[in-house]
Nucleic acid binder design. Structure first.
Lengths: 351, 351
DNA sequence: TTGTACGCGTTATCAA
DNA sequence: TTGATAACGCGTACAA
């Protein structure tokens, strides 16, 4: 015992230091390397040795020290969730999904807010990653489309997964739903209800998903032989306020649409509010559809018809893509299913 | 140079390892201890030496390694935010506040979800803290009132701050608003509008703040000489659904209240939705007030009169309480201001 | 005021 | 299949 590294089994009530790998090794009668092998599920350990180590681990309630691990290995058990100016509910869902998956896989989640406008953005990312030896990084919109960030990460060879990226890129996989298809489905549903004059509120032009949704809307119109009318399409930015502005614009039209499809729920909620000012009876005089199925969709009146985006599942998928072994790791995009949720904000035109 | 610890200034494009404290020391012509002193703002460094070190730090864009630090010192630069089953918007606000403050102070935030019902809760907390040598933890409701967690943390001598705790405790400081007073103010405002029959929907009985709000409501009634009527008080649990149930109960009354004050915005939003089913015109036939000023308060129609709780600021305050030096650290509770926000969901009775 | 040398708890190399 | 021992990067007694 050259090192004084094992703890005396002090029976006092003092806050005893947690057991180290040396304590486990000593108790199991093996070397620390063997313990390490067992902990990390490496081969070349005889069953009896493994048995004894496991017993010692249990008895001492040993947990590998997080920092020692991070220091000794190149990559840590930390996954970074990077975001910028998110919708609160979107962020929260994302995070809960990521957290749950991290916990299952023994990782921790570290959350950092970045400013996509900051010219030093790439440096910030670099500093964050090297300093904390992040195992991998999850990029949320609009960070997922920042070339500077992506390039920096690729250069450092840090695995990343992008949530809902604008376009897919080799070596920077993403997880998303088929936004185009989802918006297409919603529009088809509205057409099926009998609507012909279908207004649309676009999302933030910097978000890839926003454009995809708009495309889906147009494609459905085209398929139904309804000509596109940019009079009833307004620019929004995913925020409630922008939705309100857009709604006021559309509802002020002489020949207003019989339904408004907004690119997210926050904006759709704003349409509901705006329609009150015009004394419109919903859904008889105006149908409204949203996108996301966030909390607000159920909280407003009438409850929103919307398209559910499995945000938690997307985040969980991102984590598990990151934690795969380098060899098995895929660089392929992952696409999850969306679901049309019909509630009471939509009805045939005229009631 | 006994250690081969300095990096050759490889000019290649290969991902060069980040500079270590040895690189900085070498370049500045001092020992690593001096560098350490400068980095950690310790005294006893001559101005010229400090100067040279700073220069080297900049030139090499040196950042202390997070894990080495955590390993070498007892406490890390990690702050844990522990929660259980939160409202999404509450969590998001909390987190953004904590994150911003952490960033300013050079800390990182690690987020973990716990299950307050889990009998092994204290062990989980212990494992988390020892494993990651958390500098301190932030406890959110209802975790902030778990005796098991608090005791475990105290025993380990890990600093904590509790957000909105039920009652104040020595050695476990909290940050909160004066919930009782806030609810009192709101009720006084409603009375001032001319209401006499004021319904109330309680919050989750396990949350301390919920009880405080109920007390404030009763106190205001009493002060105004309005007798308390438990017919128009319903039990809720802070969730939208529970608010809906409570609202249906209250609105079904023969002699229904002229205003309903719900202990949070989610439940108040449910009241709005429920009132639609009764074809009530708001706020003429029914006023509604909420609490929190969360996103939903502005998204529903009519926009909710509510009481703003500075959640972000509370989280930021919690972080800075945690990062204070042990000597200066206060064990006193911190109380922030609330604010009454009057919107369009409240009006005098009868319009 | 400054520097040397060791410890922190892992992982990993390489010889046995 | 196993184990001795060297990193990993930093903080800090202790010495100068």
């Amino acid at each position: 015992m050259k090192h004084g590294r094992t703890n005396p089994a002090s029976a006092g009530s003092a806050p005893r230091k947690p057991a180290s790998i040396y304590d486990v090794a000593k108790r199991a009668g093996v070397s620390i390397k063997t313990v390490s092998r067992v902990i990390n599920h490496q081969p070349n350990v005889s069953p009896p040795a493994r048995e004894r180590v496991m017993e010692a681990v249990m008895a001492l309630s040993y947990r590998p020290n997080f920092f020692a691990r991070g220091l000794a290995s190149e990559r840590s058990l930390l996954i970074g969730l990077l975001y910028d100016n998110p919708s609160a509910s979107y962020l929260a869902s994302l995070q809960i999904g990521a957290l749950t998956q991290c916990r299952d896989e023994g990782y921790h989640l570290i959350v950092e807010e970045l400013n996509a406008q900051n010219p030093g953005l790439a440096d910030e990312v670099r500093a964050l990653v090297t300093q904390s030896s992040l195992h991998g990084v999850i990029l949320t919109p609009p960070l997922c489309d920042s070339a500077a960030v992506i390039d920096a990460l690729i250069a450092m060879q840090v695995p990343m997964v992008r949530i809902a990226p604008e376009r897919s890129m080799p070596s920077a996989p993403g997880v998303s739903i088929d936004d185009r298809r989802a918006a297409f489905d919603m529009t088809v549903y509205l057409i099926g209800l009998g609507h012909r004059r279908i207004g649309f509120i676009k999302g933030h032009p910097e978000h890839g998903a926003a454009n995809a949704r708009f495309e889906g809307y147009r494609a459905a119109l085209k398929q139904a032989g309804i000509s596109y009318d940019d009079q009833i399409v307004a620019q929004g930015y995913f925020s409630y306020q922008s939705g309100m502005d857009a709604a006021m614009e559309l509802l002020s039209l002489k020949h207003r649409p019989s339904v408004i499809f907004a690119a997210n729920d926050d904006m759709a909620a704003a349409v509901l509010a705006a329609s009150q000012r015009f004394n419109l009876k919903l859904p008889a005089q105006l149908s409204v559809a949203g996108f996301d199925d966030s909390l607000v969709a159920q909280v407003v009146w009438p409850p929103l018809t919307t398209c559910r985006q499995p945000i938690k599942e997307m985040a969980a998928a991102a984590v598990s893509m990151l934690t795969q072994k380098p060899g098995e790791r895929t660089v392929l995009d992952r696409r999850l299913d969306h679901e049309l949720i019909v509630r009471q904000s939509t009805a045939p035109p005229g009631g």
